[in-house]
């Protein structure tokens, strides 16, 4: 097996506020091969987006990466630790080798700049290209993401686009410099269902074609089930389970993962036959997390041992990881 493109090791990103440190990301680890899609799944508030921002080094004050390493490798096996880089070197990587698609396409494009400008500047920020070259590239990438009539649409402002079209523009911006890694932060949740399906299938195609690796952030396990090769499940700032998609879906070992799977409406089943499973309780506030396992207050398997924080244990084969004292039955890690 090749060495992974991206390795996140024990990442900790905390927000140091007057009310105390908010541990938005607390001990997150996963790795990702070139050309692979990784699903990062969790409820809102579980630290998914901040993990994405941490990789790019764009966490806003008072947030700060306080621990761990984010390692990015290039093809020649040279590696950089992203969170040790200075702003200047990081800037050269952002939008160039690592891109990101933000959640809300209505908010992430600048309302007063033409679409063309917003694409072209991304090229010009990273390579010595002429304006016309950059424009050609922009038209090309817009066509690839399925925007009709790209030459004309370059001149348009974001408000002239529908939500789905804007998200295609955002995807085009991410793709334009042919990055090694794209972090997609729930890029389809703000869209209606038909557009969602359309964009998802196009992204699937792009992922196959380009050899770009994707981190697909979502709260919806169903979305990544057909998209990702690996899935990392996050809860309250921590990765609680990691594994190959099919293995993880068929044999969930963390009670939280099982809860997530059970809450997906099953295919071909009559709605009346099967009641959707609900995980009891709410996501805890990151400000006053309980000691020990954060899920224990909602967990039916919780015991006395759960007052102590379990560690993320990686299986001997290295393809499965779990953070639980009382895992569900399955092959032992």
């Amino acid at each position: 097996m090749n060495r992974p493109l991206l390795e996140v090791r024990n990442l900790q990103t905390h927000f140091l506020t007057s009310m105390g440190a908010i541990r938005a990301v607390d001990d997150v680890s996963f790795s990702l091969q070139r050309g692979e899609v990784l699903g990062l799944v969790g409820e809102s508030g579980s630290g998914k987006t901040i993990t994405g921002y941490s990789i790019l080094g764009v966490v806003d004050e008072p947030g700060r990466i306080v621990g761990g390493e984010i390692v990015l490798r290039d093809t020649e096996d040279g590696e950089v630790v992203l969170n040790h880089l200075g702003e200047k070197q990081l800037r050269r990587l952002r939008g160039n080798r690592i891109a990101m698609i933000m959640q809300d396409p209505m908010m992430s494009l600048n309302p007063s700049l033409r679409i063309g400008t917003q694409l072209v500047e991304t090229v010009l920020a990273h390579r010595q290209a002429s304006r016309s070259e950059a424009e050609r590239r922009a038209v090309d990438v817009m066509r690839r993401v399925g925007i009709p009539d790209p030459e004309q649409r370059m001149q348009a402002f974001p408000h002239e686009f529908s939500g789905g079209m804007r998200q295609r523009v955002a995807i085009a911006i991410a793709l334009i410099n042919e990055p090694d890694l794209i972090i997609a932060d729930e890029p389809t949740t703000a869209l209606d269902v038909t557009t969602q399906v359309q964009i998802l299938s196009e992204v699937q195609k792009l992922a196959r074609e380009t050899g770009t690796a994707w981190i697909w952030i979502t709260h919806d396990l169903a979305v990544v089930a057909g998209l990702a090769q690996h899935i990392a499940v996050m809860y309250a700032g921590k990765v609680v389970e990691f594994g190959a998609t099919e293995d993880l879906l068929d044999h969930p070992r963390h009670p939280y993962t099982r809860g997530l799977i059970a809450s997906i409406p099953g295919e071909g089943e009559l709605a009346a036959d099967r009641r959707l499973h609900q995980i009891p309780g709410n996501t805890p506030s990151l400000l006053n997390l309980p000691e020990g396992c954060a899920f224990r207050t909602r967990c039916d398997r919780a015991g006395a041992q759960c007052d102590i924080q379990p560690m993320l244990e990686t299986s001997s084969a290295g393809d499965r990881a779990l953070r639980c004292w009382h895992p569900l039955e399955g092959q032992s890690p």
Binding site: I22, T49, I50, L286
Partner: peptide, 8 residues
């Protein structure tokens, strides 16, 4: 993770 972890 929503973008406003600090909302009071």
């Amino acid at each position: 993770m929503t973008s406003t972890p600090l909302a009071r």
